[in-house]
Design a binder for these strands. Structure first.
Lengths: 135, 135
DNA sequence: GCAACGGATGTAATAACATAACGTTTTGGA
DNA sequence: TCCAAAACGTTATGTTATTACATCCGTTGC
């Protein structure tokens, strides 16, 4: 499921969507990806959503639930995507991806203590990055 | 902003929406709240969304971003809503609200170390509660 | 080669979630 | 009482996501 991007054979649509996300400065919504890919022949949301679904499955991108958008993973081959945290700057919209094993462990055991077994986590922080806080 | 429910004077619409959420077993979407309140005179989504917005502001309810739904807060007067975590059972849809200061601190300092100042966090775990895992 | 199958695709329609814009009513001080 | 702020009602619209159905295309087994 998780693998280096080069090792996977992506389809045409998957490649186009992935490339779009990788070259973006900020997270993109499905519809803004669609708009960017009109010239490549995309006509319908489903073309985007289907590609997004696969890319998430491959561990190449993440969905940011709190802003209904998607970003390329910064460490697509690191394997530990299940508890990644994302800091989303409300000023510049850029995202910092944080992978911290200690936090993941803490959160997982917290869940366990509450009688819960986690299969997937959403950790998203909203606020300001340093660059934007200064200005 | 955060206060015991009784200390706040909620408007009619806010009261109706809050009561609906408090008596629900699981998180509700805005539109399902709307449906439940048709008999009370609700006609439009905005009536619900406006009430929800205020109730969140008052710290009486939480929004669950990963499922576009809302739940009544289990500890409305505890004050520390900014870093609550939610475990959402994918089988029974029930939610466990977890308020853990250590985790909040850990996550906040993690963000700080990454040059980020957090104003609001979304922490949502998907998986199975004990009751559902057994069956 | 070619039938059969599964995965990927194309397209249209629609469902689900959320807000803009406008005017009116209510409420709570000065 | 008067004013301003907040809440409300209504319509329309914007945004995000999925259902349903037909087609295409590469792989596998014969």
């Amino acid at each position: 499921m998780t693998a280096p991007a080069e090792a996977l054979k992506l389809t045409k649509n998957q490649t186009l969507v992935y490339r779009t996300l990788k070259s973006a400065e900020e997270p993109l919504s499905a519809y803004s990806i669609l708009d960017q890919l009109r010239d490549e022949g995309f006509r319908a949301p489903l073309q985007v959503y289907r590609a997004l679904e696969k890319l998430i499955e491959f561990g190449l991108i993440h969905r940011l639930e709190s802003i209904n958008s998607f970003v390329a993973c910064r460490h697509p081959d690191c394997g530990t995507h299940e508890m990644a945290a994302f800091a989303i700057c409300e000023s510049c919209n850029r995202v910092i991806e944080i992978n911290d094993a200690a936090m993941a462990g803490h959160l997982a055991s917290l869940a366990r203590n509450n009688g819960f077994s986690v299969s997937h986590s959403t950790i998203e922080l909203r606020g300001l990055c340093d660059a934007c806080r200064v200005h």
